[in-house]
Write a protein that binds this DNA or RNA. Sequence first.
DNA 1: TTGTAAGCGTTATCAA
DNA 2: TTGATAACGCTTACAA
Lengths: 355, 355
Amino acid sequence: MRRRRNGGRPTIADVAKRAGVSSITVSRALRDPERVSPQLRQQIEEAVRALDYVPDQHARALASARTDVVGVIIPSLTNNVFADVLRGIYDGLAQTSHQVQLGNSRYSPIEEERLLATFLSQRPAALIVAGIDQTARSRELLENAGCPVVQIMELDEGPVDMMVGFSHRAAGHLVTSHLVEAGYRRIGFLGARMDPRTQRRLEGYRAALMEAGLYDPDRVTATPTPSSVTLGRDLLRDLLARMPDTDAVFCINDDLALGALFECQSAALAVPDTIGIAGFNDLEMMAAAWPALTSVRTPRYEIGSRAVQMARAAIAGRRPAERVVDVGVELQVRASTMRRGSAQVPSQKAPVRAI
Amino acid sequence: MRRRRNGGRPTIADVAKRAGVSSITVSRALRDPERVSPQLRQQIEEAVRALDYVPDQHARALASARTDVVGVIIPSLTNNVFADVLRGIYDGLAQTSHQVQLGNSRYSPIEEERLLATFLSQRPAALIVAGIDQTARSRELLENAGCPVVQIMELDEGPVDMMVGFSHRAAGHLVTSHLVEAGYRRIGFLGARMDPRTQRRLEGYRAALMEAGLYDPDRVTATPTPSSVTLGRDLLRDLLARMPDTDAVFCINDDLALGALFECQSAALAVPDTIGIAGFNDLEMMAAAWPALTSVRTPRYEIGSRAVQMARAAIAGRRPAERVVDVGVELQVRASTMRRGSAQVPSQKAPVRAI
DNA sequence: TTGTAAGCGTTATCAA
DNA sequence: TTGATAACGCTTACAA
């Protein structure tokens, strides 16, 4: 007798023999218990337990041309934003038979395309990808993926399939308008990396200031350099060196905002009186900072879990009614933008919809 | 002719026909080009290109009882520490044919055990797991995994197979000793989550203070609550309420340290003169804070890439000479522990070895 | 160096 | 409702 290649693991045939049925009956009992008589079902379940049988995913995938793998492609592993999204995805999939295949595109559309091709070659059950700025070829791959596709983080008219996110432009507009309402007049912009989502936040900033008649391109400080707290310090220092009368800054994320705060502290600039600071994402630290930092709460975990929810529904053949879901954002007004003497702005909860 | 189940993708047989050879020759040319004559190899490569052939991973896994999947199990997706480790792992695997199967145990040994069982059922090429505190059954599973296993983050006498990390006890000892040398005498401890690694840092703290004759159990503030910046504020406030004369704190991670700093700022306590603050991990923000925060640099990215390196070597049959690799840590002394009047402590680079 | 034959463990298909 | 049989696409074992 030939030695088993699979290291002695029991196969479906072993279970079948023990339960006194044929392999295919075991297969059915496992996948769709309803289709097997209660009698046999019980015998099979017992055999499965007794043998510690675990189906071989590869054999299953080969025979059925289907897998339980959900491919996920995000641009960064270290960005807290995506860590939270991922957590939502993993939690949503934890009690299911699905597994996650994770790809890190490092903010490179080319790398994303490559990952997409690799993932697709494994016939995933569904695909979750960040953003809407895929290459033409990626878009084509996604359209012919043959599985549900959920684009996350953003909102757009033309989803490949489904979409969960919020409008970065609207969110940028929201914060900036808040700064205007809080009494600031010479509002700067601090931006890093300047990926598509960051660009759209900048658009929102610009629109809000134009509406208020306060837009000054010289107050926009943006760099392709990846974001960091240190960079936040540097950018604010640069901005103040060029435009010393700047009285507030919208930072495209919380790291930059924290850096801006530290820079103000080191330069003995009063926050919020001399300079107002607003961030983006509302990481946990923002509320704990001193002074507490204003930010925009983005429902990252929810985006992940909603994406999974939609993907699973679609896998099960129940496409959700709404193909594009806006999870909105909430402005969290805190001390860093509550200027003394200006009208008190209460901590409001204002969900923003796409523009 | 029967319709293809695989959605029309070319198979190895298609390539073989086009190249005018047999399937097995194509298979060999793909896996081990050396074993096929240059002549045929070229024909095959051309056919592969022409057909856009991509091997089916599942068929390959089924036939060979092997996969290219490296299983990775970490306790948290949102902890920056593991995000960096992951980056090291993904980068190390990026140019290879390997894929990552990522599991999040959420700091639960039981969940870890479950993930391990799931991963193992897919016959991974290697396994990378965080920590050394597996359950007995997990340990058993790992020992019989039939593939290289790398335990990361810590150091221990008895690795399952291979190990890359540093001694948390030694690192805790290092920071605490630094605080003593910097002139602090009533040094507190702020700890959250209190997972095994945190516990060992506490041990190092305790040992260092005992050696200095300064240990006071009442200054240890620890909670099982997950870490956060807000928690850092709360813990320091508690500690100071109980022991108002505390003159320094060792925080088991940088989030707590940042919270401690904010708490001092809000209570108008001078850092480092009234209170010294030291953190752990040396996240990027520590150097940017005001005052800059002392911390212990842990080579997280390196741990990830070294683990991959060792795993790949072992997969290739070249077990590394050293099965246990100590990557060490470096104390980063900054303003938050440079007390006025005390001996100036230069920013030193002192790799710490395991105890 | 190349090829033939026989699976790998599961599911699709069709028949009973 | 259950089963026999033939794939699924690839690799191992052995032969030429």
